[in-house]
């Protein structure tokens, strides 16, 4: 990234972000920028705060009563914790894919159309049909399920369910997709398919992914942020982090000395 013109635009940024669960501080003041149309991986040992940080980005932490967020978090320069920002609109712009596949216990079709329907993105059944096909194709699931769109989404295999959740997330055309260990419940083959999919999604969406697998971070991301005990140890291009980290803790973690 030495060429100045190639420096990507900052999509989301955190400044001095602190998160508290009751009296316990989970994140101790982090500055982290996420660039547009890139995959940013958050790595670090369990309990380091990477999932917590991820959940700040679409305010999913709001659902936890004792959770308090301090500091500044922006999306396209707008403070997302500003009282004028509607959390529903924020989540329509910043979608999320969870650790465990969680399709609604409804048909595949309804799983995809739920989001567009509540946001009023489609005017007719034909519009919805278009969205369903586009989203499922985007998630690489169309060929596998096109003949059984009315069957329950819960009847798919684990990997297919996770791709259905990704399709459901992109159906509302978000700008950012947050992924919280999206492959941890999948087998290696399904993981490979999802990883390939993440690479394709990067062309249209900004992606932030939390992962426990260093190899996965190396494979899918352009930038990697290393968390430890609520601190951001370092953030840099993925290649740099995995070949020439500037912090010893990063080096120790990626070489398997702890974590």
């Amino acid at each position: 990234m030495n060429d100045e013109s190639k420096t990507p635009k900052v999509k989301m940024a955190g400044k001095g972000v602190e998160v508290f669960y009751g009296a316990k501080q989970a994140i101790n003041g982090i500055d982290l920028e996420v660039y547009e149309r890139q995959v940013t991986a958050l790595i670090g040992p369990s309990g380091c705060g990477k999932s917590t940080y991820l959940r700040c980005l679409n305010r999913m932490n709001d659902t936890i009563d004792i959770c308090k967020v301090k500091g500044l978090l922006t999306l396209d320069g707008e403070d997302i914790y500003d009282p004028n920002i509607d959390v529903v609109e924020l989540r329509a712009r910043v979608g999320m894919v969870f650790q465990k596949p969680n399709p609604f216990p409804k048909s595949i079709y309804e799983n995809i159309t739920y989001g567009p329907r509540i946001h009023g993105l489609a005017k007719s059944k034909a519009d919805l049909d278009v969205i369903v096909e586009k989203s499922l194709r985007g998630a690489g699931l169309w060929e596998e399920v096109k003949d059984r769109l009315l069957e329950p989404g819960t009847g798919l295999s684990g990997g297919q369910q996770q791709r259905l959740c990704i399709a459901r997330a992109i159906a509302v055309q978000p700008e950012v997709i947050l992924m919280d260990e999206p492959c941890s419940a999948l087998d290696p083959i399904a993981t490979a398919i999802v990883e390939e999919l993440i690479g394709e999604l990067r062309e249209q969406y900004t992606i932030v992914i939390v992962t426990h697998s260093m190899q996965q971070a190396a494979r899918v991301s352009q930038r990697t942020a290393m968390f430890h005990l609520g601190d951001l140890v370092e953030v840099d291009d993925t290649e740099t982090i995995f070949t020439n980290p500037s912090e010893k803790r990063t080096q120790d973690y990626i070489t398997g000395r702890f974590g």
Binding site: N58, M60, T63, V88, E89, L90, R91, A92, G95, M96, V97, F98, K100, N102, P103, F104, P105, Y114, G115, I118, H119, C165, R168, A169, A171, V172
Partner: peptide, 27 residues
Amino acid sequence: VPPSIRAAALGIGASKNQMVFHHVLPL
């Protein structure tokens, strides 16, 4: 009702009311 269903609904931008009446209550 599993929390994952609530998270899924909120995650794609359902309001709390929509989450309850579209997903949680039917389940």
